[in-house]
Nucleic acid binder design. Sequence first.
DNA 1: CCCGCCGGCTTGACAGTGTCAAGCTAGCCG
DNA 2: CGGCTAGCTTGACACTGTCAAGCCGGCGGG
Lengths: 217, 217
Amino acid sequence: MPAPTTPPPPPLRDALLLAAEEEVGERGIGAVSLRAIARRAGVSHQAPGHHFGDRNGLFTALAARGFRTLARRMGAARRKTPADATPAERVATLGVGYMLFAKQHPALFAVMFRPELLDADDPDLAAARASAFGVLFDEIVAARATGWGRHHSETALALTCWSTVHGAVTLWREGTLETFFPGIGDVQAVAEMVTETLNTGLAAEAGDAAPATTRRS
Amino acid sequence: MPAPTTPPPPPLRDALLLAAEEEVGERGIGAVSLRAIARRAGVSHQAPGHHFGDRNGLFTALAARGFRTLARRMGAARRKTPADATPAERVATLGVGYMLFAKQHPALFAVMFRPELLDADDPDLAAARASAFGVLFDEIVAARATGWGRHHSETALALTCWSTVHGAVTLWREGTLETFFPGIGDVQAVAEMVTETLNTGLAAEAGDAAPATTRRS
DNA sequence: CCCGCCGGCTTGACAGTGTCAAGCTAGCCG
DNA sequence: CGGCTAGCTTGACACTGTCAAGCCGGCGGG
């Protein structure tokens, strides 16, 4: 009874998703068409429609795949952080991982947060998205249990951290950051800057003589 | 010599931009077409092309208009803050204004940050965008001069604040926030939550007995 | 053995799209 | 009065997403 419900998925499905990712990466999300994807995969113009129903169906499947690899990537990043890392560092590592993912898989990231391309109520997409977010949320809950950000609700912490990295990488992708902060550098630099600023706290410094620092060394 | 370079712009231009905004608001950014905009404005299918060159030309003009009203709105919000407000409050007010703008003008906001719809090197768009960002940046520089966030560069502060509010409102618009934080409330509530969390500082609390607070009362 | 069926994919058609090219018309200047 | 130009229309074309029907090879039951 390995998988009576899902017989081995036809390889064409995966080939189409791969072709879609490549096409988005080359032409850009605004100029991609189902027919071009089909051409790239070497099949008929309607093959995507056959497998995914319609346009949104294909992009939904692609986004779900994106959320799954994001979850995997963040999980791996978390596992690789040294055991003696501070809670702030652990959360920051996850944030940097989030932003690096967006750089390494621009086509996936472009689709994942474009609601008009997605079936909002697709259960597979919802599950994939939840699993990715769960990695972040679990880490924040664990960090808060050690005192980090303990004066805020878990909701407020997760919301703010996620918003910051998501906003930063979104603006970076558009080239907006490079326009307003010339020479600001790569995503890595941007990521470290925002995570450090967020972690250190702003208002607290106005009254303190020494800044509360994030790094141990 | 009032305006020898720009003769009074034909009213149809404005009518088309208005029709475009309405159309985006109703059908959504993904389903809007030049022909539908022309129909709504009661003109021929090629009138938009005549005035704006092509699809991106129209959306670029619309985005520029959006950045101008955003700049105006943030300027007004800044002028309305009480004279005895703390620097942190002044910056937070601007952030909340940014997010409220996105709620009140969803169609404009949708176009403003969608690079594949815009002519990246349009000077009018660049100027409008810079003026909006300038309001935020000036406020942050002024706040930092009083000690707020003084251990960070102006770049780091502006980048982090902007990223946070931009990310929060982006995620909110997609409905993602309501999915993961059910009952989190309106943009206003989200905005106050992230600005307060950002202002208070996280890591600082791990070592301090009392939280560094943002509010005076 | 053969016949029908069914999943996987193709072919054909259609309305709708963005854009190029040419045409129209009203108002102005000489 | 003749021609020019700005502002808009009309016509055409290639391309898109999607609906409908068709093809075909392998499988199970008689």
